[in-house]
Write a protein that binds this DNA or RNA. Structure first.
Lengths: 195, 195
DNA sequence: ATTTTATGAGTACAGTCGTACTAACAAAGA
DNA sequence: TCTTTGTTAGTACGACTGTACTCATAAAAT
């Protein structure tokens, strides 16, 4: 009957505008009017797509996970090269990934004091965990993970290392492709092949 | 002549109230009226101590550094036990350290979009770096850092690992003293003694 | 006792916030 | 063509924000 619109595309466009606002202005910029202006729509239209601020914030976290997942799924590599590419998707090595990461930590920090947002933040965190586990399994299948090493320990260590490198990259502005911090990650992965 | 007051104690009390507010309510709670109420003083008095919001936020970061530094200086341990204690001061293992860390990341994330706050945030970050370097030097002097290892690489790796564990601890609520994440750190330090 | 200062409480201003409306308009299905 | 739906734009409300005042009071130094 009526004016049909692609609701999914709308919400996705709004959420992507939200990520841009989050990176440029931070949490305080994630307002109804601000996001609507960034998305180029009326505030009332945004309000139709997301009835509350909480719904918008929650969907932003979901979008980040979706985007990272999609990029990872599109990787056409194997073995160590795949592991490298996998982990790089979670680090601020360029503008696109930095955008996601800034938005991610902004909402993650908000979730520390906004209990309603914690489930979504924890879900995203578990996704990072899964990536680390998968990365180590790929290394193992490629024979680049020494049998004497403890997979669970290494997974948790890799996860912490990854997060720490990401935080460093965010604070220092950028993570140059061949820079010292990425070399730390690469060297760490190298060592996993030995005992 | 006049009613003399301990300005230092006043600003410190205000900043400590700010940290409590930051942990309980997050960045949006760090308002003039909110902090003044938490500190039990009039808003105008807070405004006398800190003329702008930026001054207050900056001083909070400074206070965090001072508190951690003071705790570290008070440690009366040696060798590996000192290193353990040193690094634990930067992790959310109890309420006091969690308070500091939550406030730290809140302001750190704010500094991503508030360039005026970045110098202070970077200063605090460099303090963490120094702690990591010192920790490795203590290990080396205790003979628990294998000569074949690269000190600079290990310092950066330790720093990222520490930050990552801290972030995990914040998100998961608490870091139990003998929990898996602290065992990761301990085991990592163990490995530094070998080649 | 007088002077000097910081305090507390209060008021004010111009913004922004989330949320909730209304009303006019545009487009697609029946 | 008519109906249904989503769009804009605009308004409104109460609450909060940073900043900037006033003013009476309490306390320390002279």
């Amino acid at each position: 009957m009526p004016r049909r619109i692609d609701a999914e595309a709308r919400t996705a466009a709004i959420a992507e505008a939200s990520l841009r606002v989050l990176e440029r202005e931070g949490l305080s910029g994630l307002s109804v009017r601000g996001v609507a202006a960034e998305a180029g729509i009326a505030a009332a239209s945004l309000r139709r797509a997301f009835a509350t601020q909480h719904a918008l914030r929650e969907f932003c976290l979901q979008l980040i996970e979706d985007r990272v997942t999609a990029r990872i799924a599109a990787l056409e590599l194997t073995d160590r090269a795949l592991v490298d590419a996998l982990l790089l998707q979670l680090l601020p090595i360029d503008k696109e990934r930095r955008l996601e990461l800034v938005a991610h930590v902004q909402l993650g920090v908000l979730s520390l004091t906004d209990s309603a947002l914690r489930p979504a933040a924890i879900r995203l965190s578990e996704g990072v965990d899964r990536v680390c586990h998968v990365a180590l399994r790929i290394l193992a299948e490629a024979g680049q993970f020494h049998p004497s090493r403890d997979p669970e320990y290494e997974a948790q260590r890799l996860r912490a290392l990854l997060d720490g490198i990401a935080m460093y990259g965010l604070l220092s502005g950028e993570l140059p492709e061949g820079g010292p911090m990425l070399r730390v990650l690469s060297r760490h992965l190298d060592e996993l092949a030995g005992p």
